[in-house]
């Protein structure tokens, strides 16, 4: 308890906000999107720039984690080779629900300019993707916008609804 007397009504109301469970849960979820560090190629540099001081992802609550167990969103930043495809599936399966995937850049979206035998032609052949960011590489602003759209998407869902596991098939 505060020692001095507080006039709770002086600014026109009690310091109490009323809301619904959905809103408070979604507020928590959408403002603490922890991302899995997943820089596969040059898009990873832009992703790092987004996390660093100039673009400062921390203010969105997006903190990069090196473990899939602690991550909510997988930002696939770069070229996915066929050799690596099984590992992205494994890491995606290791993430806890609810989880989201952002496919960052042309290579992750469609294979991009690597129209070759060794490149997966889009990560959505392996894992379900929520958001595709165009660009080669996308600017940090694009990734910020993508994260804001993802926040909006999270807030649009009912949090009380039972989580169904996301699977490609």
């Amino acid at each position: 308890m505060a020692q001095h007397k507080i006039n709770y009504t002086q600014n026109g109301g009690l310091p109490v906000a009323l809301t619904s469970i959905d809103k408070i849960v979604n507020w928590g979820r959408s403002n603490s999107i922890w991302a899995l560090t997943y820089g596969l190629a040059c898009c990873g540099i832009e992703m790092m720039a987004s996390g660093a001081s100039r673009y400062d992802f921390d203010r969105f609550g997006t903190i990069f984690r090196a473990s899939p167990r602690q991550a909510d969103v997988m930002i696939v930043a770069g070229t996915l080779t066929k050799k690596h495809a099984e590992f992205i599936k494994r890491l995606y399966d290791q993430m806890t629900e609810p989880k989201w995937v952002i496919s960052m850049g042309s290579c992750a979206n469609t294979g991009g300019m690597f129209n070759t035998y060794a490149t997966v032609q889009g990560v959505d052949r392996i894992i379900p993707v929520d958001l595709y960011l165009p660009g080669c590489a996308p600017r940090p602003e694009t990734l910020q916008y993508g994260v804001m759209l993802l926040q909006k998407k999270i807030r649009a869902n009912k949090a009380s609804r039972a989580q169904t596991a996301k699977r490609l098939m």
């Binding site: 495809a85 099984e86 070759t116 035998y117 060794a118």
Partner: peptide, 11 residues
């Protein structure tokens, strides 16, 4: 260059 049948369905 774009791979044979095996490469196309590898993953």
């Amino acid at each position: 260059l774009q791979g044979d049948e095996f490469a196309a369905w590898y993953e």
